[in-house]
Amino acid sequence: MTTLEQSTEASPEAADETPTAEKMVLIAASGDLDKAWPVMILATTGAAYGMDVTIFFTFWGLGILKRQDAGITGEDWRQRMMSAFTGGSTDGLKLSKINFGGLGAKFMQDLADEKNVASVQELLELAQEMGVKLWPCGMTMDLMGLQESDLIDGLDTPAGAGAAISLMKEASISLFI
């Protein structure tokens, strides 16, 4: 994780969501389970702090937003091959270490269930309920041949780097994960 920008313009008012809420921007660029998890934990916690939270999903991070029934996506054979090897949806996330063909990710998920840790899917749904904005990166969608119908409902309009920079310029927390 890298902190891109951090400034403290704290307004310590006891308000839940005001029009002047502080902003948090998370760039979710990874399809790894162990990266998607902290993205969703920080997003929901930021929302609990009354922050205006936006997650910008790009490259493999877009996989988090794929519908469970999206199947192999893309038109071009290279897009379809990438899709076949990377999977998608919160069920298809892999561990960055000791994934062992998905077994490692399954062990991690089983442990999380036993220890009552909220799953990435649960946190994603919670984030949507809490008003976290989910932005898919338009360019990466095009690169990977992803249609809006391949992604879950309730997302914001696909956006680009300019929109992300505009938001990060105003945000008190911006993280690339």
Partner: peptide, 21 residues
């Protein structure tokens, strides 16, 4: 009880939303 990070803070924030000063 039994909930892990970040759920206690989330639950507390949700409860606090419906409360008055």
């Amino acid at each position: 009880r039994g909930l892990q990070c970040p759920m206690p803070v989330i639950k507390v924030s949700q409860a606090m939303k419906n409360m008055t000063s």
